[in-house]
């Protein structure tokens, strides 16, 4: 994960944070010890999302290096989503 954002927008609703991240890189933490980084192309209120240029990290119980999988364009179903965070690349 990279640098800390120093400024933040005072958004009315949590989903607004996501709206500001369109066309930006985000990291999404998912159920099943997975994380996926990618450029946010679309989302809805269920947190269904489409990410481009995505990299998925799959962690295992030991703290080994996670498995990675690349995808140029992926739809992520919202019910797996735990949290979403912007990243600066």
């Amino acid at each position: 994960m990279s640098t800390v954002q120093t400024s933040h927008q005072q958004a009315e609703e949590p989903l607004d944070l996501i709206r500001y991240q369109l066309d930006e890189y985000i990291i999404v933490k998912l159920r099943g010890s997975r994380e996926i980084k990618g450029k946010l192309q679309g989302f809805d209120s269920h947190c269904n999302m489409v990410l481009s240029d995505a990299l998925e990290y799959i962690y295992n119980e030991n703290d080994d290096e996670p498995m990675t999988k690349k995808s140029e364009m992926v739809f992520v179903r919202g019910d797996s989503v735990i949290l979403i965070s912007p990243i600066i690349e």
Binding site: I18, L22, G42, F43, D44, S71, M73, V74, F75
Partner: peptide, 26 residues
Amino acid sequence: STVRYVHMNPNSVDCTLLQDASRREA
């Protein structure tokens, strides 16, 4: 409900259109 991901050809996706639609939906 059983789907985790759907991978697709990036050329089939109009990103600008999708981003605009998301903004409007939000």
